[in-house]
Write a protein that binds this DNA or RNA. Structure first.
Ligand SMILES: [Zn+2]
Length: 384
DNA sequence: CGTGCCGGGCA
DNA sequence: TGCCCGGCACG
């Protein structure tokens, strides 16, 4: 233990690059190392409510993917407090199943949880009793038989040929594109009505599409299951009709389009769930999430909710991506005739899209990564 | 170039 | 077994 600290200290000192940094704020308890002289006041103003509920709302939206009712919001995009007008009964969440499957002991044997949760300020505490008017007999999935995630014993095994697509989760839109940027642009322009700015992406689109992986072998069946609506998804022979340019064609969701600018941020009020992915390190179990509908094959929904930074590290609230408007065309050649291609995905992993602990918390807050990330293993907090 | 993470090394 | 790092793939 001593040595550990010393080691760490040495490392830090070596790199001592972050002098005035809110770094070790949390790591005090156990390894107070350098924190002795840093001593961050640890102020936490819960000022950014706006950010918060926006995020949460987005999360909710994500969860109820294809919500039954649509009805545009009566008014007041977001009630100040408490006034949330019920409506959406409940949110069937996605499969957040993560049962320490063999590997390392993610369980976090009830340790870290210090009196003052080192975790991000707004953590386990705010466990809101969401679901305002909830009928017990209704929904919430029937079979709560915790079907475990991966069908295979070894989840982390690279599948041979997997193709990853992105499906729009908007109400009646089921568009499927093959590139994340494509789907993002689609969502931005079509659903979020961000038409004005060509490409100004705040992370919001991330919540409205889902990354699906389908085996190239059984492409047909895969698509069939996950595209109940939207005729355009039929998926032409090879790749889908990917193309950022011509996406506004085809299935233009009527209501969303017609409801004028208000339609953006469709989810409206109902920002309460606040799932707050309690990360396994501190708060052992739960992540308020029921199961994903036990339909056919369960593909992984990319949930993830950016934990709303804190301390002032910018991470990525609105990173002004400085991309030119360059034409950016899809090189057509690549699709056809690609003998030496397949090896690409076969060899290694496909690199999950979602931000992992490292990017979220940053190098400086390394102590609040999940153990896996700290050890450069597959992240367990933000699975994808 | 930064990031995710597998394989492997060290205690 | 816990912890960490080299290094590689990938965007
Ligand atoms: Zn992680």
């Amino acid at each position: 233990m001593k040595i550990l600290e010393t080691k760490k200290v040495s490392r830090l000192q070596e790199h001592e690059k972050d002098h005035m940094r809110p770094v070790a704020v949390i790591s005090d308890q156990k390894r107070k190392v350098v924190s002795s002289n840093i001593d961050v006041p640890r102020v936490r103003k819960l000022s950014e409510e706006g950010e918060m509920d926006k995020v949460t709302a987005a999360m909710v939206l994500t969860s109820l993917s294809t919500s039954p009712l649509v009805r545009s919001p009566p008014s007041a995009v977001r009630v100040t407090d408490g006034g949330l007008s019920s409506s959406w009964k409940d949110v069937p969440n996605m499969s957040s199943s993560y049962s320490s499957s063999g590997n390392w002991s993610w369980g976090a044997p009830s340790d870290q949880s210090n009196p003052s949760t080192p975790s991000p300020p707004l953590s386990a505490d705010s466990f809101k009793p969401f679901r305002p008017s909830f009928q017990p007999d209704d929904s919430i999935d029937e079979a709560d038989s915790s079907h475990l995630l991966f069908d295979e014993p070894i989840p982390r095994k690279r599948k041979n040929s997997m193709k990853v697509m992105f499906k729009c989760l908007w109400k009646n839109c089921g568009k499927v594109l093959s590139t994340s940027t494509g789907i993002q642009k689609h969502i931005r322009t079509i659903h979020l009505a961000r038409n004005g700015e060509s490409d100004y992406s705040d992370g919001e689109e991330d919540f409205y599409y889902q990354e699906i992986k389908l085996n190239t072998d059984s492409v047909a069946e895969g698509l069939g299951s996950l595209s109940p609506v939207s005729p355009s998804v039929a998926s032409p022979p090879t790749l889908t009709s990917l193309d950022s340019g011509a996406l506004d064609i085809s299935t233009v969701n009527t209501e969303t389009k017609s409801t004028t600018p208000l339609s953006r941020s469709a989810p409206t009020c109902l920002y309460l769930v606040h799932t707050d992915h309690a990360y396994q390190a501190t708060a052992p179990v739960n992540i308020p999430a029921s199961k994903f509908t036990p339909s056919s094959n369960g593909f992984s929904i990319s949930w993830q909710s950016p934990p709303v930074t804190f301390t002032g590290i910018p991470i990525s609230p609105n990173h002004s991506l400085a991309m030119g408007i360059k034409d950016h065309r899809q090189l057509p050649l690549s699709a056809l005739s690609s003998p030496p291609r397949p090896a690409l995905s076969a060899a290694r992993k496909i690199r999950g899209e979602g931000k992992k602990c490292r990017k979220v918390y940053g190098m400086e807050n390394r102590d609040m990564w999940c153990t896996a990330c700290r050890w450069k293993k597959a992240c367990q907090r933000f699975i994808d």
